[in-house]
Write a protein that binds this DNA or RNA. Structure first.
Lengths: 193, 193, 193, 193
DNA sequence: TATTAAACGAGACGGTACGTCGCGTCTTGGT
DNA sequence: ACCAAGACGCGACGTACCGTCTCGTTTAATA
């Protein structure tokens, strides 16, 4: 019966994260400031700097802490269908408010700040990759995937197109679009004999 | 016999762009400031603000102006080989100093600044897509591509994995890695009958 | 039959002076700018700089040109009454809008700008002093003034108190107040035997 | 046993005042800038703006703080002699470097800035007037002054001429000139019977 | 009358300073 | 002893004018 003792420090940490998210959603990451978060949270700036080294780190923690965003894989036995379902979820979460813009800013920040990039990788990309690889491994064992398919490339190939659209062309991504991408990836570009 | 009249204004614009690139390479985009560019270029701040609305816009223009980065497609008749060559070039340009870090920052900035995102699209993504689609169209006509292959997806599928690696996982991208991705894309994930 | 030929240059000069006065009355001397005058007058900045070396000089000219402010002395034969009348006029002109604030700013500017001070002296103070001395000389000859009264001091003594009130204490100056000052100056501080 | 605790804030305030005076004496009030004071004092601009609302207010405080300029009245029993002495002191202080130019600029600034005018009055003109009136009251009681002499006018009449000369004609003021003015004020302009 | 030089409007330009904002560090005072 | 509150040095922001400097375009006086 171990209850989590919820220290005062924990409460404050949580409050700061919550305020950060609120503010970021209201005014955007670019206009977010530690000064503003401290004021809104009723907290001294020192209390923030004691916990996070930079605005980027605070933001990343605020965005990734609340929930490990639910991007787990279903397993219905049909890998193509499961991938489809999962990527639809991903698109819904990452491509739409309220989470979408936060996530977009987070990746933007990672381009300027290596520490943020590293932590983003550790806390988001790698776990996600692990899940993907696990699901694909199973699929391959069941013969639903080409046996020579290179699992190291899984994330790049499956998620890369999605990110490209979200971040470079910045067009809205629909389920239908995702389906077309998935279909193309499965079929391959090479003409069938 | 059209001579380019090279007005004084043009010269200054060029000088500012050049200085911006220099400074960005020395200290990085994050520490770049309009004040700093103005000082180094021996130019009043207003002269910069008269031309570009923000640091991001200036930086984008400085990065994209010098040369339309040479990412044209060769055409040897073998589309797979040509794609390989072109993507190798892209990786060499976008993934390595001096251009790589600049480009990375540029995409990062686009996540915070819609105007930069739009111009990045207009001046970089769309022209590149047009070239890619043109090359693939030809290949499809010659039967080197599955006839049902969806060309609208071309950029996402071909370039997406590359961007994902450069920007999310931020691992170095080798020619060998690109080759494996390309091979997978061509073959498809589906097991061969 | 000399008509004044009113060249275009003269017209422009006049237009700039007029605009300067207008603007000064609207926004105050402190916020007045040559840039603003040029824009309002529909005139290039050069055209102003060609005529006046500084904002102060322009302002002085604009304030003092329109009319030699009518501060002439009446001569009814009674010097005390005439001084009274004249100083009432002076107070009405210098102590009240629209001219009062302009004049106040002008003297303020003269404290920072020697050229303005010199011209203010030449065009305002000295002529005024000449008139005063002339009137007092006549009065002394007619025995209405102590024969040993030192005319060099006339301006300081007669006008000084007025300026002090207008510029240092900046209280409103009434005719009644002026009368009391004049009476005191005439009577002297020394007790009568 | 009250010791003055000399907080850090007090020290900084004093340092800024001192620097302001220094700079003003070196380059003049017109070229003085808050930026310059901050740089010289090794202080952030905000630290100045937190204390004074404008360059004028800072300057006034810097000029008037160091010492209540010693313009007290002696009391030898002879009011005429005492006034003479005091006004000589005033002329020496206000009409000569280093204090003279500062004071002149201060009054100039008061013409543009009502807040400065008000504080100048409060901290300089009114206290000075109080002293003058006190001394004259005593003199009147002792019969050295015309019993009907209007003490409300004292400052205007005694100091006005001095200010007029210092600020409008801007001629140097000598002790001898002051003496002549004083003599005239005592005697009055009216011819003796 | 046609030519030409000057004056002109417009406004770009290198500067300086403005007053504001937020950074990350350091003090202070209250609980 | 910790913490909110916020002062502090600093650096950059974006703006406003300064006084100088091209630009074409009138305008008027000369050839």
């Amino acid at each position: 019966m171990t209850d989590t003792p919820r220290t005062r420090a924990d409460d404050r940490t949580e409050a700061i994260r919550r305020t950060t998210l609120e503010l970021a959603q209201e005014i955007g990451y670019a206009k977010l400031s530690i000064e503003g978060v401290a004021a809104r949270a009723g907290v001294g700036k020192h209390t923030i700097y004691r916990r996070w080294p930079s605005k980027g780190a605070l933001f990343l923690d605020a965005v990734l802490s609340p929930q490990q965003p639910d991007l787990d894989y279903p397993d219905t036995g049909d890998v193509m269908a499961d991938l489809r379902t999962q990527i639809h979820h991903a698109v819904d979460l990452l491509g739409r408010p309220p989470f979408g813009p936060l996530f977009q800013s987070l990746i933007g920040e990672a381009q300027h700040n290596p520490a943020v990039a590293a932590e983003l990788n550790e806390r988001f990309a790698k776990p996600q990759e692990a899940k993907t690889v696990a699901r694909l491994t199973k699929a391959r064992e069941q013969g639903q995937l080409a046996p020579e398919f290179d699992l190291d490339l899984a994330m790049s190939i499956l998620t890369g197109p999605l990110f490209f659209t979200l971040m470079v062309t910045q067009e809205p991504v629909t389920h239908e679009y995702v389906d077309r991408v998935l279909e193309a990836l499965f079929a391959g570009m090479r003409p069938r004999p």
